[in-house]
Amino acid sequence: MKNSFDEKILDEAKDWIKANQKVVLATVIQTWGSSPRQVGSRMIVNEKGEFSGSVSGGCVESAVVSECLSLIKDNKPCKKIEFKVSNESAWEVGLACGGEIAVYIEQIH
């Protein structure tokens, strides 16, 4: 039921670029088990670490932001990141819902 035509995240990416910001696009490309956002869900991150949109229910966004910042810093075009079930006893980023997702991040250049 995703209405991709009316989703505004890519329009926002264009606005950010127009404002001379560096933009990294993060897209959910695969999911296994229960995951909060479906394949194709997106968020954008700029070089200041500001973001819009989502790739999970708030579980992995902060990790995605830091990965996006490294991508800009190292000037790399793209990277695939996988997130697995979180271990509750450790302070690590993961999906508390028990699912796994793969997120693809790419610079818009």
Binding site: L10, D11, A13, K14, I17, L25, E106, Q107, I108, H109
Partner: peptide
């Protein structure tokens, strides 16, 4: 993704 591709998508 190239800016040109993004513009075409929009």
């Amino acid at each position: 993704m190239k800016i040109k591709t993004l513009e075409e998508i929009l």
